[in-house]
Design a protein around this nucleic acid. Structure first.
Lengths: 221, 221
DNA sequence: TTCCGCAATCTTGTATGGTAGATGCTTTTT
DNA sequence: AAAAAGCATCTACCATACAAGATTGCGGAA
């Protein structure tokens, strides 16, 4: 035991702040200070400061020395490049999986899609979102590069803030249909179709950004 | 001014430790402590601790709570996946650049290659390495995703530690020839050839890893 | 009225002391 | 002799105090 630092105060503060930022409880541009957060959580400045450092390195906070710390505004160009990174990696993943599909691949993906349909029918959007994420992470695992997904996950936080602003807009039916396309192309070893399906799937979120910027201009830089 | 934190002690310690780790002055498995480093640099433990946090998040250190902090050993699988990430992104970059090459693209790349040839003739391996890095970063800039290169750069630290163990092995002549291939394919808009040339260029380092593991087994996990 | 300067008061950065957990060696017990 | 208990001594974690840059607003001078 104790091989990780999950039990530390700093770790808890990191999690709490990250959740608040991604879920827009703390809004882009909000000014916070080590003392504020420390008082709010009833701890000293020290672990809060360390949490700030971690979150700043993840691109969620901006520490302005001797001035203040602010919740980083969403950078449209940053979002664009995060998507570029995600698409680059996921396309390469889908290629590798489709090039050499294992026998059990199709069944694994189909099971996940079935779960998603259940969550969609139950209108459990939180579970649906979790399963959507799992679908993509599973593809990474099948390609033997699960660590690469962890990287995407870090950058996805930026995208998730935008997603949170557009809740309810996304059509789960359409996402499921696209997942089915991807799964089918993968299990039949059709690399070209798999890549095209993945690109189309990822491109769908594209249109949302400009509209969101107009709706919430203060949250963007 | 002062919009950054470059002037802080913690920042300097980060840089110094990172250089020591990448250049193998601090070797994988070495045990260090906040007190050690603090005494060595003549500062207090606080900025050292913050430097540890940053470096741990970058994957160079492993903090074992209440036990010690060690220079992280190189993970062969991590190196493999870092290469996967790099190849995914760089291939996508080269596609975009080659798909829509700007008029000045060819000249920019040719100039860089010329500089590299000069550095190679002068046997200035440090400058050669810097220019090699600049070549790739320039491609990212031409694709409009310079931030993506920054991401690669973070992961490249892991690869650089391996590279440092194999100094002198790489042939600069061959690297230059490959850069020329890439530049030519890009400026003529030959997407397929550009992608193939980039993959070949990145794959060349592949063979070195297994040999390096045999030569320095203690540095790997 | 406008502008300049200064001081109160924010902020983050740094130093240091104390706490608790983990390790390893010594001593004690069986 | 072997195993277990105790203790010295590491470590990172946390709390607190102080330092120094940055901001704000007030007051006096032009």
């Amino acid at each position: 035991m104790g091989e990780t630092l999950e039990g530390t105060i700093a770790f808890r503060v990191v999690g709490a702040l990250r959740d608040d930022i991604v879920s827009m409880v703390l809004k882009p541009g909000d000014v916070i200070s080590e003392s504020d957060i420390a008082a709010r959580y009833g701890v000293s400045r020290q672990p809060v400061r360390e949490a700030f450092i971690r979150l700043a390195q993840q691109g969620l906070l901006l520490i302005r020395p001797k001035r203040a710390t602010v919740v980083k505004k969403i950078s449209p160009d940053g979002v664009r490049q995060s998507r570029f990174i995600r698409e680059s990696i996921e396309v390469e993943i889908i290629r590798r999986v489709a090039t050499d599909p294992k026998p059990e691949t199709g069944q694994i993906l189909d099971d996940l899609i079935a779960d998603q349909e259940a969550a969609s029918s139950a209108h459990d959007s939180r579970r649906f979102h979790k399963l959507d994420e799992l679908f993509h992470r599973t593809l990474a695992r099948l390609a033997g590069v699960e660590y690469a997904w962890q990287l995407i996950d870090d950058h996805k936080m930026q995208l998730d803030r935008v997603r949170y602003l557009t809740l309810g807009v996304s059509s789960s039916q359409r996402a499921i249909a696209e997942h089915k396309q991807i799964a089918k192309a993968v299990s039949t070893g059709d690399v070209v179709a798999a890549e095209a399906a993945m690109r189309a799937h990822l491109a769908r979120a594209e249109v949302l950004l400009s509209q969101t910027i107009e709706d919430f201009p203060d949250y963007f830089e």
